[in-house]
Simulated scan of single mutants.
Amino acid sequence: MLRGYGVPALPRIAKGFSPGRSNSSGVSSSVGWRRQAMAGVSKSVNGAGAVPPPVHPTYNLREVIQLALSEDAGDRGDVSCLATIPAEMTAEARFLAKENGVIAGIALADMVFQELDPSLKTDWAVEDGSTVEKGQVFGKVCGNARSILTAERVVLNFMQRMSGIATATKKMADAAKPARILETRKTAPGLRLIDKWAVLIGGGENHRMGLYDMVMVKDNHIAVAGGIENAIFAVTKYLEEKGLDIGVEVETRTLDEVRRVLAILDKGKVTRIMLDNMVSTQANGDIDVGLLREAVEIVGGRVQTEVCIMPRKIFLTLILLQDQTGFWKRYFKHSRKDWEHWCDLHFEWRFDTLGLSIGHLLQS
């Protein structure tokens, strides 16, 4: 168990840690912790294999976990547990789904337990990306009662948020096929990698991680550069000078802008065109995709096309594969009502005392 979270100190790193199934105690290096943490991540809903978190050059997932634990425990630890739970007591807590949805965050939950107390053992009946039903017990954690209760809210907060995102993503991704669903940078500060990880688990795909890994030429850049052509030429020159091989996405708002971008594809680097605000809602609630359809036809598959929309509180992006605009009406009609509570899937934490250690029984 770890000093700083209101429990005695033990080694911070567990050897042989394998999130998604179980963990065990021991010691390893920080690099080893990260490798082990990724070794057991489970399969996604589309069966594409293990889904590790997205790659980011500066994001430290372990530090995020440590911050979450320390902000909850403060400088005194869990005073409720310290006052009422004997130090040697062991317990078992079971995860119970309170509604239907897609589970995400099992691997991250194991990392939290691992960080707090390497002696805690988890056993999961499902994997990240699995569908669960209301009332289903899908996992349990056993070990020191104080440690389990100290980790409880952090684990549930991560899992509920990730599962809500994964559930909403799966609905969108299933409705959008064969188009693909992407997210944006409109994520909770400090939780971007976790939010984007949940999108992957739900069957979506990641857009750019930040400002560094893709060029997005938007209206502000175009205005300052003096036109869409000038902006594209400036980006092309910059990438060549810096030796960067990254994608370039250009925002267009009219059919004229689409044509202007296409006219200079042989002179400037453009890998994707965003078709912005080309979908409108009619008075009767139907979705008008006429302008969008025409734009996709003009592009004709020469570059990827992307559409950004905002149904209620969800920001998402679609890559349209050739002419797949028929998706839009199906998507809006069948799923707008689902997005209000997109970032939370409710779980219940059932806590059972298994007994006291022999040492504690002798003392009593």
Rank of each mutant, 00 (worst) to 15 (best):
M1I: 09
G6R: 07
L10N: 06
P11K: 02
K15H: 07
P19E: 03
N23T: 12
V31L: 00
W33A: 04
Q36K: 00
Q36M: 04
M38S: 08
G40L: 02
V41K: 06
G49A: 03
G49T: 11
P53Q: 06
H56D: 14
H56T: 00
L61C: 07
E63R: 08
Q66H: 03
L67P: 06
L67D: 15
A73T: 08
G74D: 14
G74I: 11
R76Y: 11
D78M: 02
S80V: 13
P86L: 13
A87S: 13
E88M: 14
R94P: 02
F95K: 10
F95C: 12
K98L: 08
I103S: 06
I106M: 04
A107Y: 12
V112Y: 06
F113T: 08
E115P: 00
K134R: 14
C142Q: 15
A151N: 02
R153A: 09
V154E: 00
V155W: 12
Q160F: 05
R161E: 08
M162E: 13
M172P: 01
M172D: 09
A173I: 01
A176C: 07
R185H: 07
G190V: 09
I194M: 04
W197T: 01
G202L: 06
N206D: 06
G210P: 05
M214T: 14
V215L: 08
N220V: 04
A225D: 00
A225R: 10
I228C: 10
I232S: 11
A234E: 13
K237Y: 03
E240H: 15
E241L: 05
E241R: 05
E249M: 08
E251T: 02
T252Y: 11
R253S: 15
L255E: 13
D256C: 10
R259M: 10
A263G: 04
D266Q: 00
D266T: 01
G268T: 11
K269M: 14
T271R: 09
D276H: 08
D276Y: 10
V279G: 00
S280A: 01
A283E: 14
N284Y: 11
G285E: 03
D288M: 11
V289S: 05
L291I: 10
R293T: 04
T305P: 14
T305W: 03
V307E: 11
R312D: 15
I314S: 01
L316S: 13
L320M: 14
G326F: 10
K329C: 06
K329G: 13
K329D: 15
R330H: 12
K333Q: 14
H341W: 08
W349L: 10
R350D: 15
G355I: 13
L356E: 04
L361W: 05
S364F: 15
